[in-house]
Amino acid sequence: MIAGMALVTFAIRYSMFPISGRFQFPELFKQGLRYVPPAVLTAIIVPSVLMSNGETLNLKLSNPYLIGALAACVTGGLFKNLLLTIVVSMVVFMGFQWAFAVRW
């Protein structure tokens, strides 16, 4: 698995060098590539936040993942600082999880 991952990653990063000059990217493909990182990451974020048990949709406000994710969105949107976003939302998430564990 790791060999495969290493191979495809290197192939992607290197592939352009030997074939350059003989090949032009279609404009549409170039356009699409820009959307790949946010689209892929969002497709990972949303299920892990809203379906944290892997099966059912949990939109309740008692869902600590949802609360943490909202905190991350607010912090990220306000400060655009990755480290701060991670720290604040982790604290909110853990605090919320802890508060719930204590109450119930």
């Binding site: 946010p38 990972i44 991350a72 600082n81 976003t85 982790m90 853990m94």
Partner: peptide
């Protein structure tokens, strides 16, 4: 400890500037 939340938290932080 809730580290499994670290991944979505990190990813949200990466997506927002986009």
């Amino acid at each position: 400890w809730g580290l499994d939340f670290a991944m979505p938290a990190t990813f949200i932080g990466i997506v927002i500037p986009y």
